[in-house]
Design a protein around this nucleic acid. Structure first.
Lengths: 339, 339
DNA sequence: TTGAAAGCGGTACCAA
DNA sequence: TTGGTACCGCTTTCAA
């Protein structure tokens, strides 16, 4: 059905090898032959079968991207960033979504590995490093994004999560909050890092989290809003009631805000809120949400670049950890001192 | 590096063919041999090279998905829906983003075709049908989503855009709006369909769009919000000033709302707004946005299912057009009659 | 039940 | 400058 090298070779009475060389711009082909071949390729709309090429070269020119949730704007932007970088290099992107499920992720990973991608970029929903060992066994270059794993010396691109937590908390302190709660996320590095940053910032000011002021959302991102709502209800029941809350991410912050409104309280006058992720609708909310921006597009681009680099430099380099600096975007939800 | 059939065969002193048969659950292998092979496969953590298999079977078990913008929640959800369906069938998804650029889309399409995907799902940013002819030449099954093309008898999954426009406009009329404007999108089927639905609904009530009441946003989705802001400014300059606006999509509606607020007017009291897309933050906006839901997840699932169906049934079936029914989600931005 | 041989569409190597 | 040959990892066909 599809046109093959052989078809072109037969048409022109040359060998397959000659055509193959023209295809790859080898220098040892006469200008005339080259022209003829090129012309015929255009006519027949020839496209090399990359699967066949991959079989012999050992390179698929395909990269795998495994994320917990494509619909989450953070990962969608990461994908966009990766895609942008790969496009220039003729690479394609195989995307798998784990739906924040460790087992499903394993399964998807198997699929991607079976397709012999040249490198892998993963925002993992795993809790153990077992699957990464498996990848290392295959000598397959991989780059972790967003979530790190302790005890795993791997390439990593992400935001400095401690800085995220510290920046957000410092800001709330500056705004005059005296009693700052934190709605934290699941047991993954992003959540733990932000929690630690929150603690550090309080500590710098000689403060400690009050009893019950650190609440864990029921789940991860997927139902962040529900989780944030429930967590905030617990915080509202505290006495004294906190006057500021740093939320693990924006969906959680939205849920928290809803709980505050439902309780008849105001943001930021009664309770100031800061989220994380700077989702693109934050500015348009009922009360525009202050949020820590992670520059997800840049994370995707850096990850793509690093992965390409790893593919080229055969020998495994010393793992690199690139931290993108977080940036606080101040909006109304945390502004208590403007007037 | 990677384990091959041959390695297992040599280890066990059987032939490659035998191992291959075990791999694919052929019945003509003794239980004992099967056990031994299976055991060794587990031990070596064997994964068949799908590229090699594809070369001989002619099936890559890979599907291509080309969308204008992965970050747009509509397409992200479509991707999720497709992915969900494919996962069950052992298919992987090659995703390419055209960034709403027709030329880039062509380029990405070439890449995807070169990878010999078994089928293609496209939300196209093209204005001509030329590239689809190319796909048809390859006898490659494809399914269009979201955007249709007149004069192209292709498989299509999407929402009934005329119904979208009609439902939204009818609702505004019911809410007592007398002078309804429309911010339309670019020259693609979704935009044209919604515009037509808007016209039809007005017509049913013996009305016509007022002069200047149909404004075209500067661009597509990408900068929808800016586009909506600018378009709304033009509408605000009209006399008499419209009291309701149906917007091509939610980002545009958000921009429009911002323009209304900046002009010192209220939503919905002065101007009621309905968008389209039911993006997941609509409920959390400063004024929660009424919007027509397109069930993008279902669109993705149907598209994936149809594509798989096309792959199986060799002979090209009569093109199917599946319309998902839109549903209006009423929120505060259009509620003028509640009290 | 098992396996030898051919071949999928390319590339690499070396000889002509 | 050109092309013969072997081979990438797997499946298919058919004979043993």
């Amino acid at each position: 059905m599809a046109v093959r090298l052989k078809d072109i070779a037969q048409d022109l009475g040359v060998s397959v090898v000659t055509v193959s060389k023209v295809l790859r711009n080898h220098s040892d082909i006469s200008a005339e032959t080259r022209e003829r071949v090129l012309k015929r390729m255009k006519e027949l709309n020839y496209r090399p079968n990359l699967a066949a090429r991959a079989l012999v070269t050992g390179r698929t020119c395909t990269m795998g991207l495994v994320v917990p949730d494509l619909v989450h704007p953070f990962f969608a932007e990461v994908a966009k960033g990766v895609s942008k970088v790969l496009r220039k290099m003729g690479y394609s992107l195989l995307i798998a979504s784990s739906e924040e499920d460790a087992q499903l992720e394993q399964q998807e990973l198997e699929q991607v590995l079976a397709r012999r991608v040249d490198a892998l970029i993963i925002a993992s929903a795993q809790f153990t490093v077992e699957s990464f060992r498996r990848i290392e066994e295959q000598k397959l270059p991989y780059v972790l994004i967003d979530r790190q794993f302790s005890g795993l010396a791997a390439n990593f691109i992400g935001v400095d999560d401690e800085a995220v937590g510290a920046i957000a908390t410092e800001h709330l302190l500056e705004q005059g909050c005296k009693n700052i709660a934190h709605i934290r996320g699941p047991e993954v590095s992003t959540s733990l890092g932000r929690l630690e940053g929150y603690r550090i910032a309080l500590h710098r000011h000689g403060l400690c989290p009050a009893a019950g002021a650190i609440v864990i959302g029921r789940t991860g991102d997927e139902t962040g809003e529900v989780s944030g709502y429930e967590a905030m209800q617990k915080i509202l029941a505290l006495w004294p009631r906190p006057d500021g809350v740093f939320c693990y991410n924006d969906p959680v912050a939205l849920g928290a805000m809803r709980a505050i409104f439902d309780a008849g309280l105001r943001v930021p006058q009664d309770i100031a809120i800061v989220g994380c992720g700077n989702l693109n609708y934050d500015a348009l909310l009922r009360v525009p949400l202050s949020s820590v921006d992670q520059d997800s597009l840049a994370i995707g681009e850096r990850a793509g670049e690093l992965a390409l680099e790893l593919i080229d430099s055969k020998g495994p380099l010393r793992p690199k950890s690139i931290m993108v600096e977080p940036k606080l975007i101040v909006r109304e939800s945390s502004l208590r001192t403007q007037h």
